Simulated assay, not measured.
Amino acid sequence: MARVLLFGRLSDLAGWREREIEAASIEGLRARLATEDARLGEALSGPGVQVALDQAIVRGDRPLGAGAEVAFLPPMSGG
């Protein structure tokens, strides 16, 4: 099971901030979330959304070990 965290507008859209979800990889996790909620799935695949695996930003698909923490971070703006 992976601990999944959503931040900002992603958690607002999903209606939750933290869940435990079974998935073998980041892409498998995205697919499962998209199956459960098409709007969330679209948002997670949108430009600028970053993924942190065990508190480190990663790109592309990665396997998820037992107890992994996956955080989806919305695009940031600064000024």
Rank of each mutant, 00 (worst) to 15 (best):
M1W: 13
M1Q: 05
A2F: 00
R3E: 11
V4Y: 01
V4C: 01
V4H: 03
V4M: 04
V4R: 02
L5N: 11
L6F: 01
F7H: 05
F7A: 08
F7Q: 15
R9D: 11
R9S: 10
S11V: 13
S11F: 09
D12V: 15
L13D: 01
G15R: 15
W16I: 08
R17E: 12
R19C: 08
R19Y: 06
E20T: 14
E20P: 09
E20F: 09
I21Q: 00
E22S: 15
A23V: 06
A24N: 00
S25R: 06
S25K: 06
S25Y: 07
S25V: 06
E27Y: 08
E27F: 08
G28N: 13
L29A: 02
R30C: 12
R30E: 04
R30D: 04
A31R: 03
R32V: 00
A34I: 00
A34F: 02
T35D: 11
T35W: 12
E36N: 01
D37R: 03
D37Y: 07
D37Q: 04
R39M: 12
L40T: 02
G41T: 02
G41S: 02
E42P: 01
E42S: 06
A43I: 07
A43G: 00
S45D: 05
S45G: 14
S45M: 04
S45W: 05
G46E: 14
P47D: 07
G48N: 08
V49K: 03
V49W: 09
Q50D: 07
Q50T: 00
V51W: 02
V51Q: 05
V51I: 14
A52G: 14
L53D: 08
D54V: 11
D54N: 13
A56C: 12
A56K: 15
V58H: 03
V58K: 07
G60K: 12
G60V: 11
D61N: 12
D61F: 05
R62A: 14
P63R: 08
G65I: 03
A66P: 13
A66M: 14
A66G: 12
A66N: 08
A66K: 10
A68W: 05
E69V: 14
E69G: 15
V70F: 03
L73W: 05
L73V: 10
P74Y: 03
P74I: 03
P74D: 07
M76D: 10
M76T: 13
M76F: 04
S77W: 11
S77R: 06
S77T: 11
G78T: 11
G78E: 09
G78P: 15
